[in-house]
Amino acid sequence: MAHDTHDIHRSRAEFEFIKKKRAAEMRGQLTSFAMMIFLTLIAFTLVAADFSTYLIVPIILLLAAIQVVLQLYHFMHMSNKGHGMMAFFMFSGMFVAFMTIIAMVTIVWW
């Protein structure tokens, strides 16, 4: 069955092409990393600069969300082919997570 993988033999040209493609992908990863660092810097700066709480909290939560999207979709390749089911379960998990957190921060103390 599927235990035995198909043997692949790439020609020199194919191999070079794939290698280049991977290198280009890797440059993309570097860009996402730069963005993550940048977002983190903004978040810390905002807090250090002591702006109003009502301004900072939504912004840094948004920045965190963007970072997580970068991690999931770039570093963890969730956008790749064959990740549909995984994405579905991750989002279901996030949905339950969201419900739990909302419950605890709103109705626990009433």
Binding site: F95, V96, M99, A103, T106, I107, W110
Partner: peptide
Amino acid sequence: GFMVWAHHMFTVGLGPTA
């Protein structure tokens, strides 16, 4: 199934909205 759990807790006093 994940959106109904607090019906076990109606009498806890979660408030009318919840």
